Simulated assay, not measured.
Amino acid sequence: MMGSFIWLVTQGSPLLAEAAEAEAEAGGFGLNFDILETNLINLAILVGVLVYFGSKVVGKTLSDRRERIETEIVAAENRAKEAAAALQKQQQRLTEAQAEAERIRQSATTNAQQAKEQILAQVGIDIQRLKETATQDLNTARERAIAQLRASVVAMALQKVESQLESGLDENIQQQTIDRSIALLGGSK
């Protein structure tokens, strides 16, 4: 391409220059195709140098950018894999924690039921013991009352006997008392 451009400039420039001058003299717009006047050679060299060296710089820049993008993509994929692994691990921990919570809840329910049964059994034992104690206390109180009544009856009987003794025993009563005493002792009469 560069060769075609140079050939066009060197071979076609006198013809083009004449056509441009004729157009300029006619009062219209025209182009100057004189290579030396327009400095097209310098421009062609400058464009060639830019294309030659610029393509290397642009290629290197694009290559570097591509490598950075590829590196960032690989790093992003690695982070995504790590995040997925961390998510899986956390989900597993969550599942384990839920299972442990369920086990603790069941254990607490079982322990509560056992404690309830133990308390009810102990309450039953305590109620039975209180009933027995109340019965014993009632029997003791009854026995005390009976003993007090007996003591009272004995005291009253003694008092009556003493009063009768003081008033004197007639002979008939004395004889009956003696006979009873002998009969109680095993005598005859």
Results as ranks from 00 to 15, higher is better:
residue 74 V to T: 08
residue 75 A to S: 05
residue 76 A to D: 00
residue 78 N to H: 09
residue 80 A to C: 03
residue 83 A to E: 10
residue 83 A to T: 06
residue 84 A to C: 05
residue 84 A to N: 13
residue 88 Q to S: 04
residue 89 K to I: 04
residue 92 Q to A: 13
residue 95 T to I: 05
residue 96 E to P: 00
residue 97 A to E: 10
residue 98 Q to E: 12
residue 100 E to Y: 02
residue 100 E to C: 01
residue 101 A to W: 02
residue 101 A to V: 13
residue 103 R to M: 13
residue 104 I to P: 00
residue 105 R to L: 12
residue 106 Q to V: 06
residue 106 Q to R: 07
residue 115 A to W: 07
residue 117 E to S: 05
residue 119 I to L: 14
residue 119 I to C: 08
residue 119 I to E: 09
residue 120 L to S: 05
residue 120 L to Q: 13
residue 121 A to G: 04
residue 122 Q to R: 14
residue 123 V to K: 06
residue 123 V to I: 12
residue 124 G to C: 01
residue 129 R to F: 08
residue 129 R to E: 13
residue 131 K to L: 08
residue 134 A to F: 09
residue 137 D to G: 05
residue 137 D to F: 09
residue 137 D to N: 10
residue 138 L to Y: 10
residue 138 L to C: 03
residue 140 T to A: 14
residue 141 A to W: 01
residue 142 R to H: 07
residue 143 E to K: 09
residue 144 R to F: 00
residue 145 A to I: 09
residue 149 L to S: 15
residue 150 R to D: 11
residue 151 A to D: 15
residue 153 V to E: 15
residue 155 A to F: 05
residue 155 A to D: 10
residue 155 A to V: 03
residue 156 M to A: 10
residue 158 L to S: 13
residue 159 Q to V: 03
residue 159 Q to E: 15
residue 160 K to F: 08
residue 160 K to E: 10
residue 160 K to Q: 12
residue 161 V to I: 15
residue 162 E to Q: 12
residue 164 Q to Y: 06
residue 166 E to V: 06
residue 169 L to R: 00
residue 171 E to P: 00
residue 173 I to E: 09
residue 174 Q to S: 04
residue 176 Q to A: 11
residue 176 Q to L: 14
residue 179 D to W: 02
residue 179 D to F: 05
residue 181 S to F: 13
residue 182 I to Q: 01
residue 185 L to T: 06
residue 185 L to I: 03
